[in-house]
Write a protein that binds this DNA or RNA. Structure first.
Length: 401
DNA sequence: AACCCGGGGTT
DNA sequence: AACCCAGGGTT
């Protein structure tokens, strides 16, 4: 079994390493921020986010004192928003429990929520020169090729073996450079599809190169295709404002804003909520406005009003919405948005309450009651200043055109 | 151990 | 259009 030449790797890293903003500091907080961003984003994409983030929150205290909302806003477009929240929570945790002093070793770093084995090892080795190996996707790819590792690299067995291996080759005098070297190698040379083996400082140690098939590693279990779902959405406009709703704190797009609506496994105009009974009130409205008798048309009105009742309710503008729905606004879409594990077909209705102003005088009066449901009227000009997921940004782009 | 969590990039 | 990329938390 090949044992890699650690000093050759470190030497290579110090020669070719890219000049990146987070490599100009030993500040553990800055490294923490960069590592969380880089967990989900390529370097080129992360740089402007990192600079913006550090500009606004230059220290742990700045981040801890910020509102969660502002942190999410700066994260908008990066994805995996729970990580932004955990970073913010982690900063508050450190400030509250350790008076703002970052934990100084791998084990203590692990106590921070949102800091797992990888991030703790990265901070400990880079900021504190602690001799602890990191293992990210790059390292797994490099090792799996050097060793021609035939098992699924995500298996616990693979992880254990790789960590043990790394523990034997990580140098005590420059663990941070070694770790960064392994990751830099995976990012720039030992790339997923077309590794540049001729540039590799570990070529002599690599069984994959020796046998001519490094690109077939790492072996991974194949993934399922994303499941399909419908996403009916209501765009309510009123005096230059649009109605938004805060998403729950768990699950998809946690804590972000959305236009009110609901994910459904079946299209709402066929079978709203997959067989759930409609409310008596919704039936009444559907019958009142249902001039057409076709089942399709009937269920469509039915579904949009039911959606309104469930997601917005009586809070502000029930009568106005009923009136607008009775005018049979045309359904817009679909707009397809694909997540890693789900595929939304977004259909939306634009309801401009100004068209029935006399019936909407209560909208503003009841504004306070909106907040309890996470509902909020927002000036449309402010839409680019809040944490609105890309899926809804795409919808809005089509609404205004 | 299996599943969830979003975006952007490449081919 | 179909593929790739990834670590932490939860169950």
């Amino acid at each position: 079994m090949g044992i890699i030449n650690s000093s050759k790797l470190v030497q290579w890293f110090n020669q070719v390493k890219r000049d990146l903003p987070w490599r100009r500091t030993k500040d553990p907080y800055a490294i923490w921020v960069s590592e969380v961003m880089l967990q989900q984003t390529q370097v080129v994409t992360a740089i402007p986010y990192y600079l913006r983030f550090m500009g606004r929150f230059p220290t742990l205290s700045h981040l801890a004192e910020a509102e969660q909302e502002e942190v999410l806003e700066l994260w908008r477009g990066l994805g995996y928003y729970s990580r932004a929240r955990r970073l913010w929570e982690g900063a508050r945790y450190v400030v509250e429990t350790a008076e703002g002093r970052m934990p100084k070793d791998y084990q203590s770093l692990l106590h921070i929520k949102g800091v797992g084995e990888y991030t703790a090892a990265a901070i400990a080795s880079i900021a504190y020169e602690e001799q602890v190996p990191v293992m990210d996707g790059n390292v797994k790819r490099v090792l799996s090729r050097i060793l021609r590792w035939e098992e699924d690299v995500e298996k616990a067995r693979s992880r254990r073996f790789f960590l043990e291996y790394l523990g034997e080759v990580i140098p005590g005098d420059c663990p941070g450079d070694f770790n960064q070297g392994m990751m830099e190698l995976g990012a720039t040379v030992c790339t997923p599809k077309h590794p540049r083996c001729e540039q590799c400082p570990l070529q002599a140690d690599c069984e994959g190169f020796a046998l001519g098939d490094p690109q077939v590693y790492p072996v991974k279990k194949s993934k399922e295709k994303p499941g399909s779902a419908w996403r009916p959405t209501l765009i309510l406009l009123h005096q230059g404002q649009v109605l938004l709703k805060k998403r729950p704190s768990t699950g998809l797009l946690a804590d972000l804003w959305e236009f009110p609506g609901e994910e459904m496994m079946v299209p709402p105009w066929e079978n709203y909520r997959g067989g759930k009974e409609f409310s008596a009130e919704a039936v009444k409205v559907a019958e009142r406005v249902g001039e057409e008798t076709s089942r399709y048309r009937y269920n469509l009105d039915f579904a949009w009003y039911e959606l309104y009742k469930n997601q917005i309710g009586d809070a502000a503008c029930d009568e106005a919405v009923q009136e607008l729905l009775s005018r049979r606004p045309s359904r817009q879409g679909p707009l397809v948005h694909t997540f890693s594990h789900r595929r939304w077909q977004i259909y939306w209705l634009v309801l401009n309450l100004d068209e029935v102003m006399d019936k909407t005088v209560r909208v503003r009066e009841n504004e306070d009651s909106l907040k309890g449901d996470g509902l909020c009227w927002l000036d449309v000009k402010e839409l680019d200043k809040i944490a609105l997921p890309v899926a809804f940004q795409k919808v809005w782009a089509k609404v205004t055109i």
